[in-house]
Write a protein that binds this DNA or RNA. Structure first.
Lengths: 122, 122
DNA sequence: CCTCGCTATGTGCATAATGCATATAGTATA
DNA sequence: TATACTATATGCATTATGCACATAGCGAGG
């Protein structure tokens, strides 16, 4: 019973660095901050329960460590200050590299799906 | 320098449970064993350095724990015995579920790539 | 004034998937 | 008897991610 539940939960949309890639994609268009990015991510298929604020903030910090983004505090008249993230040159290069990986992922997935359709025919 | 190297290495094709899905796909066609599956996986885009035998065997055992496959030893006249894996009913159901996830992954990837092309235009 | 809710960022701990190195062992062949 | 190939497996570390919780500013309403 419990095993079944776990089995079901294990089927996620998880793809290596997917969140990071989405963030780079948003940030290449415009600079933004964590709390705002949380809402923008729904465009990329993130449901509310799929997205965790803690994870998001940690991913952003990791990206900054790797010099993919840079951040600066922005004072706010109403509410707490915001850490604004801006994509770097390296970040743009990184996104470009990821796009190539994504295209290969896409081919692999297509191959799998076609394979499955073939099997189903018989 | 070292950081750069890590950065580059992090860009993998890794997708959650991709190996498991490929194995289910092979095994739904025909039963097989670890060492043989190692070679068959090249069809699914696994390069030699991308595929690790230890990982493969461990994934197979995990799949058996979850009742997605069942195994039986087959004596060999030449070379060591083989553990033959066969897909189960639950395994077939699992593969079917994964296919749905893959289709959603595909849509998400397409969305990202289109997004990127749009940005590039400007 | 004080609490509640929203905005905003962050940490601690655990788990799950995977990689790398290594161990073990049977068989064939040179 | 040494080497190469077949075949399966474990130990340890790393990495990504999830869940729960902590912190703190600010505004509205009682």
């Amino acid at each position: 019973m419990e095993k079944q539940m776990n089995c079901h939960n294990r089927k996620t949309h998880k793809m290596d660095h997917y969140l990071e890639i989405c963030l780079l994609m948003i940030l290449i268009k415009t600079s933004s901050y964590g709390y705002d990015l949380l809402t923008n991510l729904s465009d990329f298929g993130f449901t509310k329960d799929e997205l965790n604020a803690g994870t998001l903030y940690r991913v952003l910090r990791r990206m900054e460590e790797h010099d993919l983004v840079s951040s600066a505090w922005e004072a706010s008249s109403q509410g707490p200050d915001k850490r604004i993230y801006e994509i770097t040159i390296l970040g743009k290069k990184e996104l470009n590299d990821w796009i190539h990986i994504l295209k290969e992922r896409q081919e692999r997935i297509s191959f799998l799906i076609n394979c499955y359709e073939e099997v189903k025919k018989q």
